[in-house]
């Protein structure tokens, strides 16, 4: 689905975390991002949304959240637990 160029990583997170079938996972992510499911694979549309919400992007990364920073935002916007984010919080004392 093109990963962070679109919303492939976000859809996959819902499959991995909640065992959602593809259409359900897309619907869930689309609702959380306030777009239609078909927009999730539109790289142009998603570039804007990912930048706006700090969800990580392939290029044009100046001052945008990267790596674990972006995953903090992903966990929040998708309302899921992300293991590495929780570990980061635990190790740094962030609540």
């Amino acid at each position: 689905m093109s990963g962070i160029r679109t919303a492939g990583d976000l859809v996959l997170r819902m499959q991995l975390a909640k065992s959602m079938k593809i259409d359900d996972a897309k619907k869930y992510v689309a609702e959380k991002l306030g777009v239609k499911p078909i927009d999730l694979s539109d790289s142009d549309r998603m570039a804007e949304i990912r930048a706006k919400n700090g969800l990580g992007r392939s290029f044009d990364l100046n001052k945008l959240p990267k790596g674990i920073e972006a995953k903090f935002n992903i966990a929040k916007i998708l309302d899921i637990k992300i293991n590495s984010v929780d570990l980061f919080k635990m190790k740094t004392g962030i609540k």
Partner: peptide, 8 residues
């Protein structure tokens, strides 16, 4: 992630 566009 960044070059090949992998979902995971």
């Amino acid at each position: 992630e960044k070059v090949l566009g992998a979902d995971s």
